[in-house]
């Protein structure tokens, strides 16, 4: 019987979200991440089909060459720089993806902003664990300035909500145009202005050589001491060590972080103990709507492949990025 491995099913819900039975294949669900390649290979070497959630596991040429039975690699969304698609195709492995909704990430951005400025997670924990009442004084976002590093699909969605909250919205990125800003009622500014004026600075740009390390020691030094940094995009756009330093030296008021240089975040990572943060475990895309659609389409992809037709083939022009 054809074997299929479903990797990184952290919440253990992949089985319940789609009709796997109809495929008539053997399914192996793994809810723990494989940190070393040897145990990953050992677990999935017999599988013809592997399902990889987003960018959680790196499939480079070396790994793909060792998975000699692999014929179909299914992932989620249409862009996945953690898979060497060209290498896969040259090895005769088909790679297909799925559609993806962008609003869950914009919504999580707002969840982090508001949790930070109103100390929601902190006060909730204080009430439960210490029986404390009203520990902190929050800030209003009304009239404050939201700075967006990047004004793509997600950035625009975040801007729309900010405008409804009567915030001032400013934006900058390398290839952002004044026209794009005007269309979205956002003020186009320089990078320096973005850093210096933002009360909340939120990152919504893709990771590339140009955006890597865009926010580092220099930028934190120029931010307002009352400002908050939000990153729901990719960790490497911010220098994590500089972020820790800024949090410790109170160069900024706090940070809401969903993405990390190493994921899953190491157990003893210093961010885990920083109190002026709200931390979530890369759940920007983790919403029921996305998961239901993804696993439905994954099963469709497998079903179609079993019948001899590859659907939702991934774009091979996106280069693998080992840093993810």
């Amino acid at each position: 019987m054809t074997k299929c491995a479903i990797l990184d099913d952290y919440q253990g819900i992949a089985r319940s979200l789609a009709d796997w039975e109809k495929l008539n294949i053997e399914t192996l669900f793994f809810s723990d991440h494989f940190f070393d390649e040897a145990s990953l290979i050992d677990a999935i070497k017999d599988c013809e089909i592997v399902v990889a959630m987003r960018e959680r596991t790196l499939f480079d040429r070396a790994l793909l060459e060792k998975l000699t039975n692999l014929k179909l690699l299914v992932t989620t969304a249409r862009r996945n720089p953690s898979i060497d698609i060209l290498a896969a195709e040259s090895l005769g492995i088909a790679v297909c993806g799925s559609d993806a909704k962008t609003y869950p990430t914009a919504e999580l951005t707002w969840a982090l902003i508001l949790a930070l400025v109103r100390h929601v997670a902190f006060e909730d924990a204080q009430m439960r664990l210490k029986k404390n009442w009203q520990m902190k004084v929050g800030v209003d976002i009304y009239g404050k300035t939201l700075g967006l590093l990047g004004l793509g699909t997600i950035g625009v969605r975040v801007a729309r909500v900010a405008l409804a909250f009567d915030m001032k919205v400013i934006a900058w990125s390398n290839n952002l145009t004044r026209e794009r800003c005007e269309e979205n009622h956002v003020e186009y500014v320089s990078k320096d202005e973005l850093i210096a004026r933002s009360d909340i600075l939120s990152i919504h740009t893709q990771l590339s050589k140009r955006t890597e390390g865009l926010i580092g020691h220099n930028e934190f030094a120029k931010m307002k001491p009352t400002a908050y940094l939000i990153n729901t995009s990719r960790a490497f756009i911010v220098n994590e060590e500089a972020l820790l330093d800024a949090l410790d030296r109170k160069l900024i008021a706090g940070a809401g972080i969903d993405v990390y240089e190493a994921e899953p975040l190491p157990f003893d990572h210093p961010l885990r103990s920083r109190s002026n943060t709200v931390l979530t475990p890369h759940i920007g895309y983790v919403s029921e709507d996305n998961y239901r659609m993804w696993f439905t389409q994954i099963v469709e992809n497998i079903d179609s492949w079993l019948a001899g037709k590859v659907i939702r083939r991934m774009d091979a022009t996106i280069n693998i990025d080992r840093s993810l």
Binding site: L265, D268, L279, P281, I283, E288
Partner: peptide
């Protein structure tokens, strides 16, 4: 996250 865990829930969307 403070106790070393990673991804324990699947959220709901608003849209």
């Amino acid at each position: 996250m403070r106790s070393g865990k990673w991804q324990t829930t699947v959220g709901a969307g608003l849209e």
